[in-house]
Computed example of a mutant assay.
Amino acid sequence: MPRKALTTAAAALSLALLPGCVSVEAGDPFADVDLQRQDYILAAVVSPARPAEDTARDAARKPAEIVAFSGLRRGDTVAEIAPGGGYYTRILSQVVGPEGRVYAILTADRANRPGGRDAIDAIAEQYGNVEVVVVDSYAGMSLPRPVDLVWTTENYHDLANGDIAGANRAVFAALKPGGLYFVEDHAAPGTGTDATATLHRIDPEAVRNQVSAAGFALEAESDLLANPADPHTARVFDYEGTTDKFALRFRKPG
């Protein structure tokens, strides 16, 4: 992208990152994002290394704003739970930079399927700071070293179908003191966990309660991906519009 276009995009991003996009209990330390951090987040999102099928989803997923909200910084070590096709893995890798590390975490049952880890292995080969970590379960997750941030997008509802208390305790144990836990998922307000297996959605209040029970403090929540037009009654895969999503940032005391 030409320098002028980057500058224009950076200006647009700076407007998007104004603190009006979040709801905070007691002050959000990331509401005023420094300009240098905006630059490297933007550079990761506009990188020509990202495939067209990923960038086509950016308008709906708002990756620059979401990464800024998550609190991720240059040089961080981040664990990404269930990276899927690597939409965010590529962005996280470039945000943390060569001094940082991304652990892309797959369960053994997923990794052992035919072709189950082909996409993420290809990303790890392309991006030298990405390492694939295979675990028996997220509740038994063990990482090579403590991390600054644990990240999961559109997958928490799947974790909730298993030992979610154990998974959240494992996340807590994997983080450094003061580390962050970022959760973004499809919303089904008022349903608790009743829609996790059927609609592939979850009640954000259920997430708040479950993660808080593991010892985390809710630091901020964002309505960046909210869609009031979503009736919350359709399966995520069947809904023709953009689903209503929530984003939550928790902190481990330290």
Rank of each mutant, 00 (worst) to 15 (best):
E65D: 08
N112L: 11
Y40M: 03
R61Y: 03
R74M: 10
A111N: 07
I66Y: 02
T153S: 06
A49Q: 13
V130C: 06
E125S: 14
E53Y: 13
D118A: 15
K62T: 02
G75L: 06
R113K: 15
D158F: 09
V102R: 04
P48Q: 05
S93G: 11
A122I: 01
A167C: 15
Y88P: 03
D39V: 12
A43R: 14
T153M: 01
R145K: 14
D54Y: 14
E131P: 04
G86K: 04
R90A: 11
A165G: 12
L106N: 13
P51F: 09
Y103E: 08
N129E: 11
I164N: 07
G86P: 07
I123V: 15
P83L: 07
P114L: 06
R90M: 04
R61G: 00
A68V: 01
A122S: 06
A124M: 06
N161W: 00
E99W: 00
E53M: 08
L42M: 09
V45T: 03
V135W: 06
D54V: 02
V134Y: 04
Y138E: 10
T107M: 13
E53Q: 10
V95M: 05
Y156K: 03
Q38S: 09
L149H: 00
G115M: 05
I120K: 07
G140C: 05
G140E: 14
G86D: 03
G100D: 05
V132P: 12
N168Y: 01
D136K: 09
V102E: 07
L72D: 00
P48G: 02
P146K: 14
R117K: 15
Y138V: 10
M141V: 13
N155C: 11
D148W: 01
S93W: 05
E154D: 14
A43H: 12
Q126F: 02
R61Q: 06
V95T: 13
N112C: 04
E99H: 08
R61M: 08
P146R: 13
T77P: 05
L42N: 08
I41R: 08
G86F: 02
G100M: 09
Q126D: 13
Y127S: 10
A139V: 11
K62L: 08
V102C: 04
Q36N: 11
M141G: 07
V132S: 10
F69A: 02
T107I: 09
G166L: 08
G100A: 08
I41N: 04
Q126H: 08
G116C: 03
